[in-house]
């Protein structure tokens, strides 16, 4: 295996500009996600607002391979609330003590990738850069990968002659990387929140940044996916300022194959019991018959 490449995303410097989303759409020629695509004669309809802070993307989709999240937190208790109830009512009604967490979410290019594991056609492969890539001409649209991904990254999409009906997600700009270019999103990021490089280099940088933040009085700063605890490590890992769940990231995602052996053994037990039941049902009567008429011969 040659060197693994990926993203280190420092969420503390994300300003929520969504330049990464725009760059991703441009480079990968992803259409805007509208209610109705514009035509020659009609301008097209925009999507309804999500009403969720500045987030109007909502979630990953077949055309949104990046998704900048805006998490609103209110640290200061609103009038009349006790300290204990704060954690249960994070919104202060006037929203004048708001704290924003912003994070540009993307495919994690997991070291042990659930999507790649379950893919029955071999459409999902690991590239020479250790990224996870979907080969559109191979995918037959079974959607196993969609339910396998613990981050909700993969969605089905594509138009005629553009991989219609196949699984879509971030490619880590495989086409750019093959020509020595930085992925579009990292190139566009104005604050270097999204950093691209060799995973080993990025980890050193990230660990130093966490140490600096701890020294500056932010003990909550933590890395997500930099070690091997989450799916063997994430080739797109994060520096977070709160628990993963606050960012909508799973703290303990599951590897699909973990279930195969125990589930199979339990199902074998079930089959064995069904067979024993059948044995009892069909043999018992024969024994009774035999007892009633011992002269009757076995078949």
């Amino acid at each position: 295996m040659s060197d693994a490449y990926g993203f280190y995303t420092d969420t503390t410097v994300c300003i929520g500009c969504k330049a990464c989303q725009v760059a991703c759409h441009q480079w990968n020629e992803l259409p805007a996600e509208l209610e109705q695509q514009p035509t020659e004669h009609s301008p097209g309809q925009t999507r309804p607002m999500t009403g969720n802070s500045y987030d109007n993307t909502g979630s990953f989709s077949d055309v949104n391979w990046r998704h900048v999240k805006f998490i609103e937190k209110s640290e200061i208790p609103a009038m009349g609330t006790t300290a204990a109830s704060v954690s249960h009512s994070p919104q202060d009604p006037n929203r004048d003590n708001l704290q924003w967490l912003m994070m540009s979410d993307v495919c994690k290019h997991c070291v042990n990738a659930p999507c790649l594991e379950v893919c029955p056609t071999g459409a999902i492969i690991r590239t020479e850069f250790d990224s996870v890539y979907i080969q559109e001409p191979v995918c037959n649209g079974c959607r196993n990968c969609v339910g396998a991904c613990p981050f909700g990254v993969i969605h089905m999409g594509g138009t005629a002659n553009e991989g219609e009906g196949t699984a879509k997600k971030c490619t880590l700009c495989y086409d750019r990387m093959q020509h020595g270019l930085t992925p579009a999103c990292a190139q566009a990021c104005p604050t270097e929140s999204i950093q691209f490089g060799k995973i080993t280099d990025l980890k050193v940088r990230a660990e130093q940044r966490v140490k600096d933040l701890h020294d500056l009085g932010f003990p909550q700063a933590q890395l997500y996916g930099a070690d091997t605890k989450i799916l063997g490590g994430l080739n797109s890992f994060y520096l977070l300022m709160d628990q993963p769940e606050v960012y909508g990231l799973p703290s303990n995602p599951k590897l699909p194959s973990r279930a195969v052996i125990p589930s199979t053994f339990l199902s074998m037990g079930s089959a064995l019991l069904v067979a024993l039941g059948g044995l009892f049902a069909f043999r018992k009567k024969r024994m009774e018959e035999f007892a009633a008429d011992p002269t009757a011969k076995e078949r």
Binding site: N144, P150, P256, S263, T264, M268, A271
Partner: peptide, 13 residues
């Protein structure tokens, strides 16, 4: 009979 159940378990749903 059994693999379909194992298939559902081997996800993150």
């Amino acid at each position: 009979a059994a693999y379909t159940g194992v298939l559902l378990t081997a996800t993150n749903v």
